[in-house]
Simulated scan of single mutants.
Amino acid sequence: MSIQWKGIMPAVTTKFTKNDELDFKMFETNIKAQLDAGVHGIVLGGTLGEASTLIDEEKRALTTTTVDIVKGQVPVFINIAEQSTKQAILAAQKAEIDGAKGLMMLPPMRYKSGDAETVAYFKAVANNTSLPIMVYNNPVDYKIEVTHDMFEEILVCDNIQAVKESTRDTTNITRIKNRFGNRLKIMTGVDTIALESLLLGAEGWVAGLVCAFPKETVAIYELQKAGRIQEALDIYRWFMPLLELDISPKLVQNIKLAEVATGIGTEHVRLPRIPLQGTERTHVLNVIEQALKHRPTLPDYKNLSVLV
């Protein structure tokens, strides 16, 4: 499957049982809801997927299970977030064996690598896998920025093809387009500036609140693509209080609580995370309640005429 770097790609949550085991039944319920909504890919093991708490066997089980559920309808990606180049290469090779069709890849974890080290890290992994790679550029949360000069160096690797653009600077989209044209595809990675990013030229959206509201998320993408901007904007404005739950240290708990409200998830998280409590919980529940009360009626977004 050749990767089409476009559309909505949920960064799905990892579902756990109350006994802290992988909950494949609820996980399948959510994945099927994403597919039914019309998403264009599935991203596993990201921040929302509680990657740092998963052991290797769990990551591999999530990959093979998702591949089996999806059955080739959309590509399955696994996030690479490792502490050493050796571990990252092994993770990429296991992902390929397990049926993933692409990688989302962060710079080295824990150690704040310099520019040359970061470039060498990405190139080493790219040269040891045939899978296409989307670089996750999130200096706000992970403290390492992949600059345009660094992209110039790593794009000698043909399988480095896209960026999950999470610098939170929308002007960066235009700078990337001006410098790299179509060589580097852009997937916006910040929910609260997603529509703006799409209108500025991002090809797609690696989304968070899509985990609980898949149809609304895909509708925004399809409407703006068809040039029906006001309709996309109306849904986006309704969505914004929910989208703001994604730019919080408690984004996992927030979004899992939203998944409970829409019937496609549970609240179980893995320690050291604990479910929301007190005023935090009350606030998030109120945001979700108000959103559900005013949930928009969606157009037939799967059958729109797309602007050329």
Results as ranks from 00 to 15, higher is better:
residue 52 S to H: 11
residue 67 V to F: 11
residue 41 G to N: 01
residue 30 N to S: 14
residue 147 T to C: 09
residue 33 A to R: 14
residue 82 E to Y: 02
residue 166 S to W: 08
residue 108 P to F: 00
residue 87 Q to E: 14
residue 131 L to R: 01
residue 152 E to C: 03
residue 152 E to G: 09
residue 27 F to Q: 15
residue 157 C to I: 07
residue 106 L to W: 01
residue 94 K to G: 02
residue 119 V to D: 01
residue 60 R to P: 05
residue 135 V to I: 15
residue 30 N to W: 01
residue 116 A to C: 01
residue 131 L to W: 05
residue 23 D to N: 15
residue 91 A to C: 03
residue 31 I to T: 14
residue 107 P to H: 00
residue 51 A to D: 10
residue 80 I to D: 06
residue 83 Q to M: 15
residue 35 L to N: 03
residue 25 K to V: 12
residue 154 I to W: 10
residue 65 T to W: 07
residue 134 M to Y: 10
residue 123 K to D: 13
residue 39 V to N: 02
residue 88 A to N: 03
residue 94 K to C: 02
residue 105 M to A: 03
residue 122 F to T: 07
residue 124 A to G: 07
residue 61 A to N: 11
residue 104 M to A: 14
residue 132 P to I: 11
residue 47 T to C: 10
residue 95 A to Y: 11
residue 71 K to L: 02
residue 37 A to F: 14
residue 146 V to F: 01
residue 161 Q to I: 09
residue 106 L to F: 13
residue 166 S to C: 08
residue 112 K to A: 12
residue 140 V to F: 10
residue 121 Y to G: 00
residue 121 Y to S: 08
residue 46 G to F: 06
residue 131 L to E: 03
residue 61 A to D: 11
residue 31 I to F: 09
residue 158 D to K: 13
residue 141 D to I: 04
residue 133 I to Q: 07
residue 77 F to Y: 15
residue 105 M to F: 08
residue 31 I to Y: 12
residue 48 L to K: 02
residue 131 L to Y: 11
residue 148 H to C: 04
residue 148 H to P: 00
residue 95 A to N: 05
residue 94 K to D: 09
residue 129 T to N: 05
residue 53 T to F: 05
residue 63 T to P: 02
residue 122 F to Y: 15
residue 99 G to S: 08
residue 167 T to W: 03
residue 126 A to Q: 09
residue 168 R to V: 12
residue 44 L to T: 07
residue 24 F to W: 07
residue 99 G to A: 07
residue 122 F to K: 07
residue 38 G to W: 02
residue 125 V to N: 01
residue 147 T to A: 04
residue 112 K to Q: 14
residue 145 E to L: 04
residue 107 P to F: 00
residue 150 M to Q: 15
residue 130 S to Y: 03
residue 54 L to A: 13
residue 109 M to W: 12
residue 146 V to D: 01
residue 168 R to S: 09
